[in-house]
């Protein structure tokens, strides 16, 4: 449900970054651990962007897989289907190196 608030923020940022221009595309970077669901954002976007200059903008999502560093043996590994166990030593858990991203990378606007 929090995707509605998230999507409102996405639209606000896009509109503020290009005042009085038609926003044609928004590129969003989402980490695997960001807790934000692409489909929900797409669904909310239609409602939130209606009657704004971002209406109809194409959404592009760049997904960032989660990478962890084992807290025991320092082995770096990719989170496999939600399994936080280190493939090297079996220790459960790691420091998150990437995968929490949640930002707008760029927007596409019509030429002046």
């Amino acid at each position: 449900m929090h995707e509605l608030a998230i999507t409102q923020n996405i639209v606000d940022i896009a509109l503020k970054s290009a005042p009085e221009r038609q926003v044609q595309g928004i590129t969003i970077v989402l980490g695997e651990l960001s807790g934000i669901v692409e489909d929900s954002v797409r669904f909310c976007f239609e409602v939130v962007a209606a009657d704004t200059a971002a209406k109809g903008a194409a959404l592009t999502f760049h997904k960032v897989p989660a990478h962890l560093r084992c807290t025991k043996c320092a082995f770096e590994f990719k989170l496999d289907n939600g399994d936080w166990a280190c493939p090297q030593c079996g220790n459960l858990g790691g420091e998150v190196l990437q995968g929490r991203e949640c930002y707008i990378e760029s927007i596409d606007v019509e030429d002046e």
């Binding site: 949640c102 930002y103 707008i104 990378e105 760029s106 606007v109 019509e110």
Partner: peptide, 15 residues
């Protein structure tokens, strides 16, 4: 079409 680099946290306003 023109690309504008932003790189802004989506939750920036809340933060």
């Amino acid at each position: 079409m023109m690309k504008i680099k932003i790189v802004k946290n989506i939750l920036d306003a809340n933060d």
